[in-house]
Structure formats: structure tokens, C-alpha cells
Design a protein around this nucleic acid. Structure first.
Lengths: 252, 252
DNA sequence: CGTTGCGTTGAGACATTTCAAAATGTGTGG
DNA sequence: CCACACATTTTGAAATGTCTCAACGCAACG
């Protein structure tokens, strides 16, 4: 089954018609300017699960907006194991961390069938020369990423397994919500293994926590299908800032 | 004793005369343009150890460049304990993570006597409207921060106590080197407690690792004074990307 | 000279990892 | 569409690294 996130997009929709535009880069532009952005965007064929968008070390040339599906980014430690650094849902921008080097510092791989909009960075820079608001949007996106990374570091250095998983689920729920999907029940696009890798936990621990959450009736999990049955409790467990969780608890 | 980093700066030196300019924002500007930057910079009195530059939640108005001394940034978890998110040495920019919100998401505090250059962000934005290179420099700085955070997440989720401390020391050494100081022997500006907090370790663990490293003759530690006696071995332990470590190993 | 803050050291507790095996799910070719 | 192979998930039991708690040493300081 294709991701729910797929259904609403034809393969070659323009930014001005894309339902993601209020979340994506066009957000920064006036309606009459969106077409300018549209012209520099390249839309390729869909990536199948497992295909790479770029590899660590590839020369940096573009940033990418996820249109449907999902991506992960990862680096390889020198022992050869991978460290997942992020998951990307529709409207989110991948590749910005390569911006100050000549090559991508991470690899980006589709974890389900995924469509992306490629934005050549030199052209984006030129465009943003004439559009301060686009510039600021880019800065905001990076600044937001830095704050999210801070939250992630807090998670990795202070939270226990339960809190990590709770945080992860709440965060996903909130991102789904903002995209117009249910924050109560959704489908995880990543495997338990990938989740554990990202959260700094062994697969087995992830599995055990899911079982425990299920018994505590916080969630109902069936493979990758997740239903959050006690959002309030889960938020408390996650223990993040209320602002991040509010929309998950209040509106369902 | 004041930090070694203090000695070369008079209190009101201009950017064009500041020895840090090749590492700092002026790097992005032509010599004749540096004075423009200079004019918007506010240089206040030195902060004493423990004084705050800004608090989490304060309204965002400026970014700051450290001129001498050192800062830490931290957030408070909802249980009230602090999570240190970074240490800042001279020429490094603090406050950029608040850029897309109206308030700072972290607090910034001096961990020794510290001088900063305050750069009001609205003025910096205006200046950068006319200086694409300054703009790009800002983007590069943020992008670099994102990559560093990725390394940090890797450290927190995959490395053990020894590897964490080794990585931390190597990283510090490398930053000192780039600022023209010895990478072999230096003074830690943070306490064991702060180091542990930052690295996701208990103070006691930090202390034990230091003792262990000393016995293995990797370092010689006397309180906050550190001498790296086997940089090569320490780099291997740190296990980071070679590029990050090269200058520590090769040149001493 | 007691007080206070910081660093060190030891012993036991504990959460998570590791290892191993079974169960379940998924994809492929016949 | 079934059967088989392979990957993923779950579960259990033992191993382990780090934390917690507690005590002590040391230096700075009023």
C-alpha cells in the first residue's frame, strides 16, 4: 500500500497547485513570485524504497523538498555502522547541511516510495538575491533545524527508552497533523531498527517499549500501524516543552 | 588567572584590527566593508563568570560573537535540570538558533570572564541585504552548526564514555589550534560537571575517564589544565572523521 | 579554621545491550 | 497462489557500562 501521503499529488504538480506550499518554500513567496521558484525546480521520477537521493561525499548541488513518501539521512561511523540523523516527511527540506561544504555530509535514502522536488542551490541563491523573504525562510528553516537538533541532543543525553519513544511518537503525530493527517493513527514509514538507530536504542529495546506501551494502553501498535490511545499520558512521558505537544493533545 | 584567549585583545578593538576577523563574520567582507559591520556592533562591558548574556525566552534581538573568554548555552528540562547545548570560544557566534522565533530557545552564560560583540540582528539583516557574501557566511555558519550537531548526536547515541571524552578533548584541541593556541596543552574553561552534562555522562564518569586516560598516558590532567600526551591514540579513540582530527595529530 | 564548592574514588543498583532463539511478516519464483 | 527463503520483530536470560549514592580529599575563601 502506498503511503497516505501520496494520494493527493499528481506526479508533476506545480508549486502553486501543490497542497504542501503553505508548509514548504513557497510559503516565503508572493503568489505571483511562486512561478519563478517553480521554474528552477526539477521533478524527477519517484524513488523506490532503498534508492538514494544522494550519498555522503557527493558534490553538493541541490536541496530537495520531499513531496510524498519519506526519506532518512544518515552518516556512516568509521566502524561502518550507520547513524540515522533524521527522517523527512512531505514539505520538509533535505540537504541544507551540505551548504557550507562542497559535498553532502550525509546520505539521503528513500524509506518508502518517494517523490522529491530538486532545487539547484545556485539557482535558489540567485532567486533569493531578489527575494529577501525567501532568504529569511531559508534561514528560518536552518534555525529550526538547529533547535530540533538541540531537542534531540537532550533526548539522547537525558531521556530513558520510554521517554525517547514517547517523544518520537508525539513528534511524528504532530508533524502528521500539520500536514492534515490524523495525529491519532498513522503508519510508521521506518522500521523498528531505523527507529532504534535514530533514537540511540537497540532494536530489542524499541520492541520492548512498544509492547510495554501497548500493555499500558498508551498506544495500539500493529506492525507499522500506530494508534495513539492516550495522547495526554504519552505527552507527559515525552516530557517535552508543552508548545510542541499542544496540538497533539488538544485536537484529534 | 584570565584565559589565555584574553591577552591579545584590548577592550574596544575594531573588527578591522581584531585578530579574530579571519575566523569571524568579517571573513565574509572586503576590507573596505568591514567598517560597516563595525558600526552596528555593540561592545559592552565584560561578563563575569556566571553572568548571563541572555535567558531562554528573552526576546530575540541580537547574535553575539565571543571575543574573549567562553560561554555555554543551555536549556532547562521540565524537571528543572539544565542541558548544556554548546560551548563557545572566541570568534564563534551565539544566538543564531533563535533566529526563526521571537525568543531565544536557550540561555547563554559566561563560564569565565568573557567579552562579546553584540550584533543587532535587524541591522545585520539590512547589512546583509547589500552583501551577498555576508549572507552566505551566515548560512555557512548555520550549516556548519547543523553538521556539528549531527556529530554530537552520533556521539550521544553510539559512543561510550571513553570515546565521548576523547572526542571532546580532540575537538577542543582543534578549535584552540585554529585560534593560534597550542592544541597540545590548554586550559578547560568548563567544570567536570558541565563537561559531563554536555556529553551525557555523570560527573563521576568524567572523573573516572580522566583518571583512566592519565594512567594510559594519553593525557596529563591537573585540574583544568590539560596536556595531550598521545594525540594519535586519542584521535583513534575519538574515532571521528579524520578530517576533523588531522590538524591535531599532525602539527604540534 | 570552619565552610563551601569541586573533584575523586568505591560499591552496589539498574537500565539497556548483547546474544540466542522463536515467531511473524514479506517478497519471489515456480 | 502457494512454498520457500529471507528479513524483521518479538521475547527471554545473561552480561555490562554507566549511574547513583556516599564518603573523602583538596583548594579557595571569608
Amino acid at each position: 500500500m502506498a503511503s497516505k501521503l501520496n494520494v493527493r499529488h499528481a506526479s508533476q504538480v506545480a508549486c502553486r497547485d501543490c497542497s504542501l506550499s503553505p508548509l514548504c518554500l513557497p510559503l516565503a513567496l508572493k503568489i505571483e513570485d511562486i512561478d519563478e521558484l517553480d521554474e528552477i525546480i526539477k521533478r524527477g521520477r519517484p524513488l523506490k524504497k532503498g534508492e538514494h537521493l544522494f550519498l555522503e561525499g557527493d558534490s553538493f548541488h541541490s536541496v530537495f523538498a520531499v513531496r510524498s513518501g519519506a526519506l532518512k539521512t544518515y552518516t556512516s561511523t568509521n566502524e561502518g555502522e550507520e547513524q540515522i540523523t533524521g527522517f523527512y516527511l512531505p514539505s520538509e527540506l533535505v540537504g541544507l547541511s551540505g551548504l557550507d561544504t562542497d559535498s553532502y555530509p550525509v546520505s539521503a535514502q528513500a524509506i518508502e516510495t518517494t517523490m522529491v522536488c530538486e532545487i539547484p542551490f545556485d539557482k535558489l541563491e540567485k532567486l533569493s538575491d531578489n527575494h529577501p523573504s525567501l532568504r529569511r525562510q531559508l534561514m528560518r528553516i536552518m534555525s529550526k533545524k538547529i533547535r530540533e537538533d538541540q531537542q534531540m541532543k537532550l533526548l539522547l543525553s537525558k531521556k530513558n527508552a520510554d521517554e525517547r519513544i514517547a517523544t518520537f511518537l508525539i513528534n511524528l503525530a504532530s508533524r502528521f497533523r500539520r500536514r492534515g493527517f490524523s495525529s491519532q493513527s498513522f503508519r510508521l514509514s521506518m522500521s523498528r531498527n531505523e527507529m532504534g538507530n535514530y533514537l540511540g536504542l537497540a532494536v530489542e529495546t524499541v520492541s520492548r517499549v512498544f509492547t510495554r506501551f501497548q500493555k499500558a494502553e498508551l498506544i495500539h501498535a500493529n506492525g507499522k500501524e500506530i494508534e495513539i490511545t492516550n495522547a495526554m499520558e504519552l505527552c507527559i512521558l515525552a516530557g517535552g516543552k508543552l508548545a510542541d505537544n499542544a496540538d497533539v493533545v488538544n485536537i484529534q
